[in-house]
Write a protein that binds this DNA or RNA. Structure first.
Lengths: 329, 329
DNA sequence: CTATGTAGAGGAACCGGTTCTGTTAAGTAG
DNA sequence: CTACTTAACAGAACCGGTTCCTCTACATAG
């Protein structure tokens, strides 16, 4: 491998001069040209490790994601990718497979790699998470969940829940089934649901039944095959679009028509909701923008600027074909 | 930041001793314990850059992907992720947004980062690609396309096309519409289609019409809205599952029933084909396994082992609801 | 003409590790 | 008791850069 010493020798100058050429300047036109030519010939490119070692700066940003095959995660990632490239950062992505142990591990691995900051897609946050993060000196940003003393960007999940609730009431529905996810995920499992509940409860005679599943389509599908036949609700609120898509599949296979037999909605605004039929009513989240915002915030954090602890992303109700007025039969 | 020097000083030994403690051994039990204790207290962890600088080894593998929101890419990535973790490598993922310029750039960036090897999801391969890759000394592996002199793992696209062709003939279809993608993607745009054509052509009286679109669902959807009304084919072969899903959506909106009005199939075996209705017949590709295989191959390449230039992954016809016998009306 | 400032360049120190060389003390063989 | 090994460790060199310090030559001001 060709190093700065080789260049210096061939150019007949000190390596500090080559370094100056590469960085600040203050090199005469003559030497500048000589060095330029030799670098061209040899195809030299400085060793990043040596650089980082001296500069104590790596130009890397770490991203921790819980799984690779998630539509929402990928959209946020796109935003992150776009923004980090613009700012000249390299991305190191680590995947935890939704496994807490692995997340603790990854937090440390990234810190060891001396990334300048970490964006972590948070699912459930345990005290160990917080502790592990606090131990590292690395700037950290959570996406999707908030935690005391750590910066984060979250969705307005409570408001999203409210929007669905208000909309469903408007349609005349009073009997709901909420297909939720575990409460360990506060944002999705608790806030989103609570927003819905608080929206519909004030109305006399509303009933909200609940069922819990996980984030995978297959589980939701299996459960739906069981609960749908004995369901009395006229509106099924699914905690994510994936769950909604899975429930829809089960419903069709069981012979139900949607929205005639019951209404159905999700959360997220994934592309999939537009490619099934009926298309699914949902609340659209600004994932890509969230990624961009995340990088902006992290960079300011890295620069030791004062940044508000919590940023919230708004969202928007998207009415599709899967929801309709409740009509008394 | 605490360094090996700090540890050495506190333990009253030379830093070489600490280094030996961290690596080989040959440290007395006494000093071993002293060092251990101090490392524990200080939370010291060696600087990877300094290490890599000396060792000329980075333990990093670069991955280049064309886009983040691709189901197939993500499945392969999962395999890669699983395997690299097992082998103790760090993953650097770069995204090119399907832009050739960006791909050239990324090839060089990764080489500069001194990754030990690169796995590149290839779409179209230009001479510049090949040239840029050859210039780097880094072991390279292409996924999805083959190129002279560069190692690669590909799907048996021609065979996949044949399988669909044979199956469609069996069902009695003779008039086909092939919804393809540009030929710049040799594997998908040429081989896959050619496999299909070669399979159906020997039968007298078959007609294959062709239409071209790109890989996005929206484009395929727009095009389908136009070509479906004037189509005479009884079987629509889509070059990817995404295209198939989009055509299905358009078909439904136009009031067609599938497979009654025409049959429809894709390629890939994405999850989405199982969550629309009718479920879509497809050829299932072993994406995850491909990722695992890719890492295995790359690692052997890094180790300077002899490795065959091309590895092929097999695939499997999956018959779903979107295809049925041709019945003369 | 002398004093002062400045551009350009070389040399050395440094970043935080690993590894090679050399030294010492203790153990073992003869 | 002497000669030879060897375990344990210190010290220095090195990896490939950046940066600080110093020196020289030349230009400019007074």
């Amino acid at each position: 491998m060709v190093t700065i010493n080789d260049i210096a020798k061939k150019a007949g100058v000190a390596k500090s001069t080559v370094s100056r050429y590469l960085n600040n300047g203050s090199v005469s036109l003559d030497t500048r040209r000589k060095i330029e030519k030799i670098i061209e010939e040899t195809g030299y490119s400085p060793n990043n490790f040596a650089r980082s070692l001296k500069a104590q700066k790596t130009n890397m940003i770490g991203v921790m994601i819980p799984r690779l095959n998630s539509a929402s995660t990928n959209e946020v990632l796109e935003g992150i990718d776009e923004m980090t490239r613009k700012l000249g950062y390299q991305l190191i992505i680590t995947n935890s497979d939704q496994n807490n142990e692995r997340e603790y591990e990854n937090i440390q691995t990234l810190a060891k790699q001396k990334v300048e900051g970490v964006i972590m897609f948070a699912r459930e946050l345990t005290p160990t998470h917080i502790e592990t993060v606090s131990k590292t000196q690395t700037p950290f940003l959570f996406i999707g969940q908030k935690a005391e003393g750590i910066h984060s960007i979250i969705h307005q999940d409570y408001q999203a829940g409210s929007k669905i609730g208000a909309y469903a009431l408007e349609l005349g529905h009073r009997h709901f089934l909420y297909v939720g996810v575990p409460e360990t995920d506060r944002a999705v499992g608790v806030d989103r649901r609570q927003g819905f509940i608080d929206a519909v409860r004030p109305v006399n005679g509303t009933i909200v039944e609940m069922i819990e599943t996980d984030f995978s389509r297959t589980s939701a599908y299996q459960k739906a095959l069981k609960f749908l036949p004995e369901m009395e609700a006229t509106y099924v609120v699914c905690a994510t679009d994936n769950i909604a898509v899975a429930v829809l599949k089960a419903a069709k296979e069981l012979g139900y028509s949607i929205p005639e037999d019951f209404s159905l909605s999700g959360f997220g605004g994934y592309e999939a909701t537009a490619y099934v039929s009926p298309t699914i009513t949902t609340v659209s989240y600004p994932f890509r923008e969230m990624g961009i915002e995340a990088v902006n915030k992290l960079v300011r954090l890295i620069g030791k600027e004062e940044v508000p602890y919590i940023s919230e992303m708004s969202n928007e109700l998207v009415i599709n074909q899967s929801t309709d007025f409740f009509e008394k039969k």
